[in-house]
Amino acid sequence: MVTGKTVVDLRGGRADRARSREWRQDSLVNVWSATKGVVALAMFGPGTWWSGSSVKRSG
């Protein structure tokens, strides 16, 4: 929202396989695949337990 007005609304389509319910503002969505990148950054990013175990840095 920009200054109280909706700029982009990305919801649309059907909420079930039978295509009997439309998407609503409060429809639930699985986000399991979307979290893979966040977990990878948390585990392997700089300063984490994994980042310095066997990696040799130059400099």
Rank of each mutant, 00 (worst) to 15 (best):
M1P: 14
V2G: 15
T3R: 11
G4H: 11
G4C: 10
G4A: 12
K5H: 05
V8L: 13
L10M: 13
R14P: 07
R14S: 11
A15P: 03
A15L: 08
D16N: 09
D16T: 08
R17Y: 15
A18K: 14
S20D: 09
S20F: 01
E22N: 12
E22F: 07
E22T: 10
W23C: 14
W23E: 10
W23H: 14
R24D: 02
R24H: 02
Q25N: 04
D26I: 07
S27L: 05
L28K: 11
L28M: 02
V29K: 07
V29C: 08
V29M: 08
N30A: 03
V31N: 12
W32T: 01
W32K: 10
S33V: 02
S33N: 11
A34Y: 03
A34E: 06
T35F: 08
G37Y: 03
G37A: 05
G37D: 06
V38F: 13
V38H: 09
V38D: 15
V39T: 07
V39W: 11
A40H: 01
A40L: 01
A40F: 00
L41V: 08
L41A: 15
A42R: 11
A42M: 14
A42V: 10
M43G: 06
M43D: 08
F44V: 05
F44T: 06
G45I: 02
P46Q: 06
G47D: 10
T48D: 03
W49H: 13
W49A: 15
W49S: 14
W50M: 14
S51T: 11
S51E: 11
G52M: 07
G52R: 09
S53M: 08
S54M: 03
V55Q: 06
V55W: 03
K56G: 00
K56T: 00
R57Q: 01
R57E: 02
R57P: 00
S58R: 14
S58L: 11
